[in-house]
Design a binder for these strands. Structure first.
Lengths: 107, 107
DNA sequence: AGTTTACATAGCTCTACAGCTATGTATAGA
DNA sequence: TCTATACATAGCTGTAGAGCTATGTAAACT
């Protein structure tokens, strides 16, 4: 039974799938057709990726007639942020190459 | 040519490899032997994973006699943090399920 | 009812890669 | 120098999964 980090990393590791998620983040809700038009892969492949993103909790779907609208669920990224913070935390007292990183995280 | 995000996500997607990186973050510098003893896979596999982590910039190696000491390079996680922040940014004006996330990121 | 459109599912192939064992290389010790 | 130790590399096998085409399902339109 893979943990939350596992699912997130594995889901986002595929470039095509990550690109779909990024588009949904940037441009908001999109239909499968609209996503397919720019994805560079076939419609079944897009549907499959969206299914995997949905399983990971990264997207929601909304049915409207025969269209399905997908949208990103940003909250699902929380475990990833936590993991990064945790790794950074372990290191906090060791090096200072991480100052850059912490500056980024704290904005 | 895969970009930095691609390399990071793909590198961290493997559980065995991510576990190695996590141990190096938690416990600091370790030899290949010490890592192998707890990894649950053979020594060549550990060496291979460490090589991949090194290529991704996530670890450094230091040779001392016939031992090789590996240590985590936290700075390499920066692109991942930036990516997450970017995705969050795109959404900032859309939903507020992300308030949780931003709270975490800003500490 | 029949057709078209939108998406999902099924079934296949092919490649990437994680794991193994065996071997190579280099350092430490006898 | 000969052996033992520590790690890296080579070569192989098995499997997960990303892509495809073909087909299924369901809604809109005529």
């Amino acid at each position: 039974m893979p943990d939350a980090h596992d699912v997130l990393f594995r889901t986002l590791a595929d470039p095509t799938r990550r690109a779909l998620f990024e588009r949904l983040c940037r441009e908001g809700e999109k239909t499968v057709g609209a996503l397919t038009a720019q994805a560079g892969v076939s419609q079944p492949v897009v549907s499959k990726h969206l299914g995997i993103l949905k399983q990971a909790g990264l997207v929601r779907d909304r049915h409207e007639g025969r269209q399905t609208h997908y949208s990103a669920q940003l909250g699902a990224l929380a475990p990833l942020v936590d993991w990064t913070r945790e790794m950074a935390g372990f290191w906090q007292s060791r090096f200072n190459a991480l100052e850059d990183l912490l500056k980024r995280m704290d904005q």
